[in-house]
Amino acid sequence: VSILVIIGTAGIVAKEYSQGTIKFLLIRARSRTAILASKFVTVLLYALSLTVVTAAAVYASGMLWFGNGGGLGIGDVLTSVLYNSVYMVMYATLAFMIGILTTSTGVTIGISMFALTISNLIIFRDFYKYVLFPNMNLAAYEGGGAPLPGMTLPFSILMLAVYFLLFLLAGFMVFRRRDVA
C-alpha cells in the first residue's frame, strides 16, 4: 500500500508542471498555499482510502479462509492499521515534498522507493535515533521494546512530528517561491 501511495503522490504536483496545467491553477483566485494544501489533503485521503480498503479486504479474507479461530480480532487489525498509517503518512509526505522540489515524477518515485528500501537498515550509532526511519516503527514499542537503545515512544512521536513539519515547510516554501512562467 505504501508503494501505491508513493506512486500516487509522486505525480500530484510534478505532473502539473510537466503537463503545463500548473499555470491554470495559479491564475485562479486561490493562494498557492491553499492550492498546495488541497493537494496534500487529497494525498492523505487517497492514503486513508487505500488503507481502509486494504484492511477490510485483509480482515474479510482472513475470516473467510481461517474463520475466527486465529485469535486476532478487529482491535488487533485496527491497531495494525494505525501503526501502518503513521508509516504511510510519513512516506506520502516525503514523496509530496520531493515531488514539489524536483517537479519530476520519476525522480520522486525513485528517491521515495530508495528511502522505502533503506528504511529497514539499522545503524547502531547514537545519531541514528534522530533519523526518520527508526522512528517510524511505532509497533516496536508495543511489547516494551524500542528500535534502538535510548528511544522512547514520546521521543519517536516528537521526531516524526518534526520531520512531518520540516517536509511540509520545505515543500510549501519552495512551491510559494517557484516561478511558473
Rank of each mutant, 00 (worst) to 15 (best):
Ala37Asn: 13
Ser112Leu: 05
Gly106Met: 05
Asn84Leu: 10
Asn68Asp: 15
Ala10Asp: 06
Arg32Thr: 06
Ala57Phe: 11
Arg176Gly: 00
Ala14Gln: 08
Leu169Asp: 01
Leu153Thr: 12
Glu16Ile: 01
Tyr83Met: 10
Asp126Gly: 04
Ser119Leu: 08
Ser156His: 09
Ser18Tyr: 06
Thr152Cys: 08
Ile12Val: 15
Met88His: 02
Ser119Ala: 15
Gly20Pro: 03
Met63Tyr: 12
Tyr59Trp: 15
Ile111Asp: 06
Gly20Asp: 07
Ile123Glu: 10
Leu121Cys: 02
Tyr17Asp: 09
Leu160Asn: 14
Val174Met: 07
Ser156Phe: 13
Ile100Lys: 01
Val86Ser: 09
Tyr59Ser: 10
Asp179Asn: 12
Met136Asp: 09
Arg125Ile: 00
Ile35Phe: 09
Asp76Gly: 14
Phe124Cys: 00
Tyr163Asp: 10
Gly71Lys: 00
Arg177Phe: 04
Ile157Thr: 12
Phe40Thr: 04
Gly62Phe: 06
Ala115Gly: 06
Ile27Pro: 02
Ile74Ser: 08
Gly110Thr: 08
Val81Leu: 12
Leu101Ser: 07
Val13Ser: 01
Tyr59Arg: 07
Val43Gln: 07
Ile111Trp: 10
Leu168Ala: 10
Met136Arg: 05
Val89Gln: 10
Leu165His: 03
Met88Gly: 04
Thr103Ile: 02
Thr117Trp: 14
Met97Lys: 00
Leu101Asn: 04
Ser61Cys: 07
Leu72Lys: 03
Leu165Glu: 01
Ile6Gln: 03
Ser61Val: 13
Tyr130Val: 00
Ala95Thr: 15
Val41Thr: 14
Tyr83Pro: 01
Leu94Asn: 10
Thr51Ile: 02
Asn120Pro: 05
Gly62Ile: 05
Phe96Asp: 09
Leu48Gln: 02
Met113Asp: 00
Phe127Gly: 00
Val77Glu: 04
